[in-house]
Amino acid sequence: MNRYRGFFVLALIIIIAPIIFPDSYFVTVVGVTIALNALVAVGLNLLMGYTGQISLGHAAFFGIGAYSSGLLTTMFSWNPWFALLMGLLVTWLVAEIIARPILRLKGHYLAMATLGFGIIINILMVQPTHITGGPDGLSDIPVLNILGWDIDSDIRWYIVANGALLLGVWLALNLINSRIGLALRAVHGSEVGAQMMGVDIERIKIRIFVVSALFAAFAGSLFAHQQAFISPDSFSFHFSIELVVMVVLGGMASNYGPIFGAAVLTMLPETLVVFEDYEVLILGAIMMGIMIFLPQGLWVGLSQKIKPLFLNKATSSVESVGG
């Protein structure tokens, strides 16, 4: 049960937050954005943290999910759930097709290729105006309904988005602790080494890439319904980079680091708005500062710093970081 300790703590925080602050903008509104970003980040971390592959194109998968839901529900009046499934199917296909050639690339070449992929998808959202609505986007995306329950208020979205996040974390935990997970860690350690041990690296990398794309697409579909409006600006390469920053800032190779990173990076602009024109400068300085002083990310970095304070407890929490 130990490996799920972090999961239960996370669930507890998610449940308690709106009870303590029932009408707080930062919980019920920003909390939804955090949860959706975190869901993508957890998926991306499977790829980055456990296989050591970078993707600067995950906003594209997020966007494919969102546009599938948006287009199918508005233009063809599909049921949102079928649209969501279709979004996952399309993402699965796209990811499967590009994964093979793209994952043969290494390091910065992979970064560039995924970045390029993201930009191409974004142009495909902008240009065919008659289909996608172009830069003005798609409006009037209908409300999501779960078992007769309309998801149309902030608090309901809080529950759905965070429920999705918990589901995602649960899946990720199980994946990591499965046999694939073991193989994964081997890949990150040394690809050649793992290969010699008889691990079929290519297949595993592709599978993880697809899984992480599906995480993003799922979050994207929810995002489309939550916003009721989508436009290509929300899925540009800026967002891809933001996602990578969330993962790295929070700390890779822990399931909770990226969630922490997503929370920090989503909250920062919300709190920095008071600095007006200084906002951009401060955001950049904070990013640099964290990476210079806590190169392993906030999660690992902070828990190591706090360790001496609560010696007994902290040892176990650092251990759980691995799981």
Partner: peptide
């Protein structure tokens, strides 16, 4: 990430 931070800065 540091260089991205630097570029934002």
């Amino acid at each position: 990430i540091i260089t991205i931070g630097a570029s934002i800065f």
